[in-house]
Amino acid sequence: MTGLSRRGLLLGGAALSLVLAPGLTLIAQARPAGRPASAAQRWGLLIDTAKCTADCTACVSACKTEMGLPDHGRPATDAQYLRKVSVGNPANGVERSVPVMCQHCAKPPCVDVCPTGASMKRADGVVLVDRHICIGCRYCMMACPYKARSFAHEAQSGQRPHNPRGKGTVEGCTLCVHRIDADRLPACVEACRAQGKGAMLFGDLHDPQSEIARALAAQPATRLRADLGLDPALRYRGI
């Protein structure tokens, strides 16, 4: 296998891109055509809630636009891949606004419970729903501790080409795999940089040289419901 040399290449590329264009791209390079996602990488997000303000919903709007999620005016059944949760500490009154989405667990319960294998984890750690074989049983929604998934409650039209979605199947945050695979940042991260305060940091958790890995090494972050032992790829600071 070419895993080792490829990894070296990736590391070099990452360092290079950081030097050449800091902030513009955090991904070493787009995966060449015909190559599958590799377990050498694990995509993750670090969210600093201290930088996230309650009135900013740039990430949420960007997600809805990017993924083509319509608003039917029915909040109980409309799909939400990403939402902002206001988290208040009753002990001291400190309030934080926390973006919550699929946590892309290393041991995802949604994948365990899915009867057909539609709920799946890609080699690079991205948890997806294969809607080609999803039968719409919603067991994954019962099993997810983060309430990260939605059910398409109505027939769809005008979907975005990169996010096919249809009535009767389950969906959720894809970590924008279509962007990651093309060497771009997830839509929420991009919007947070452009319009927000840059509270979201995206990168490869397995690459010790990546910005996210170095940030995590420098200062610890928490996982949501770490007690469940699911090892999510999303990390939070300031909760």
Binding site: P32, G34, P36, D130, P161
Partner: peptide, 18 residues
């Protein structure tokens, strides 16, 4: 193609519906 793209993450192959 669909299984290759979605499940394995292979991009840029020639039998894409798009």
């Amino acid at each position: 193609q669909r299984d290759l793209t979605l499940r394995a993450g292979v991009r840029g192959t020639k039998h894409a519906l798009k």
